[in-house]
Design a protein around this nucleic acid. Structure first.
Lengths: 278, 278
DNA sequence: GCCTAGGTCCCGTCT
DNA sequence: AGACGGGGCCTAGGC
């Protein structure tokens, strides 16, 4: 474990250690007064100020001010770092291709330079993702609806891959779109695209159900679902159960008919598509 | 301009300077061997390793490994930082509400601690955004189509605000959706939602046109546009002109009835600062 | 390489 | 506060 630190170094000193640290594969931090120029997918300039610059050995570059989680300027992994001294200023340049992008940081003064041997596990164990929600449902498909049978995940369609494809107790095809958090209009449209794709695939005479599974839904998204004859089931991604203390599940479709009231009532999945494609 | 730096400090020393730095409103960096536990919208754990931790005075918290632009763990602005020493480990905790979230960082050893007086401009001057594209079009509506008349931006509808609302040469209502980059299916759906909202507003007997303006469009999005009778116009957000060397504008709708008036466009833009050298 | 969609997305803006 | 959409989004997984 090594760390190299310079306090108020000259640009020449910084340049020397910078190149050595890049060579070693260290993570570098530079605290100093600088300006930043970016040119690529967009263009930006940032006036002088004291900022923390981070150069990672994978080419990532971050320029942080005293605010926000998001760096004020950056470069994603894969860029090449180059440093030089010109006109009395230290220039750190990060360039990459696809797309062509350049980030130039000009230091008027470096207050502190550090090279850090950042090592160890990078993969975190995360729980509560959409994938966890999917696994809950595949473990117990009745979470979506009694009689639901998943047939395929990531099933391809002309509109893209659908999260879960299956059929209900009557054998009607179902598309299930999963979201780990409260959903807005875009999720309703996404589900609608998949349903339309299946309609084109199977023909309009075949009924297709679309079900959005998420912890909750906004009013506008609920309206959108209703307009398109889509359904909603409230489930929490972490527990796989309905979220606590909300009647959100009633917003679009009261689920019930789970286990007690068997399924004698006809499920009438044919009341959809009231002219949305026209 | 002050910077406080400790090398291989004891946890007690770190704790002392940490609290002083938080009090001062400094940006703090801690490099050390740590584990990280997150609980909030999701849950995660990260095993031991040497990482760079950043605590910003606005409450932002970042845990960086040697890879990626995105921190492996984080807390957005607004969280409260608390440090303590327990069981021989330094614990830095960040908590926030709405939603309730906690990030715990346990340091087994701190290799370096720094408190930095990060100051100066935070607002960058950025060019090439969707807003710039909108201004290009409002300056010269014929960029969309000869005879196009913008009437309102951010016009409200039941589906949300549309980027530009206006009418064509024949007085037919038009919704224009702008994107600064190549668009996929979601942008086509978004435009479709706005068009449907206007159909509900005006009645189905009134024709409504939907136009997507972006530098380019994916095949699938182009299909979606076609299915829904929507149109596409290729424009670059930075220049306001059609992107170079593509016939993307033909992908969906060949722009008929507008080509006669554009013979005298000023071809500027030689002023690109090509600072690339060797 | 492009496309598609998820994300503890973050973030601004407006209701 | 919640909602909605933009972002130089980033990142992962297919093809």
């Amino acid at each position: 474990m090594h760390t190299t630190t310079l306090h108020r170094p000259t640009h020449r000193e910084t340049l020397w250690e910078l190149e050595a640290a890049i060579e070693r594969g260290d993570l570098i931090t530079v605290f100093g007064r600088c300006t930043v120029d970016y040119d690529g997918r967009a263009t930006s300039t940032l006036g002088p100020g004291n900022r923390l610059v981070i150069l990672k050995p994978d080419g990532s570059t971050l320029v942080h001010t005293d605010e926000k989680r998001t760096p004020v300027n950056w470069q994603p992994p894969g860029c090449e770092h180059h440093a030089s001294v010109r006109d009395g200023r230290l220039r750190v340049r990060g360039t990459r291709t696809t797309p062509d992008e350049t980030l130039d940081i000009h230091f008027e003064q470096v207050h502190q330079f550090s090279a850090l041997d950042v090592t160890g596990g990078r993969d975190l164990d995360l729980y509560g993702s959409e994938e966890d929600l999917r696994e809950h449902i595949l473990d117990d498909p009745s979470l979506v609806e009694s009689g639901f049978t998943p047939l395929e995940t990531e099933r391809e369609s002309t509109a893209g891959p659908m999260d879960i494809y299956g059929e209900d107790a009557e054998g009607v095809p179902m598309v299930v779109e999963l979201k780990r958090r409260r959903v807005g209009p875009s999720a309703a449209s996404q589900l609608q695209r998949y349903v339309e794709a299946l309609h084109r695939e199977f023909g309009d005479s075949v009924a297709v159900r679309g079900v959005l599974v998420a912890p909750s839904v906004t009013d506008r998204a609920a309206d959108l679902l209703k307009e398109n004859g889509l359904e909603f089931v409230a489930l929490d991604p972490a527990t796989g159960e309905p979220p606590e203390a909300t009647e959100a599940s009633e917003e679009v479709e009261p689920p019930e008919a789970s286990e007690d009231a068997d399924g004698d009532e006809p499920k009438e999945a044919d009341s959809e598509t009231d002219g949305s494609d026209g």
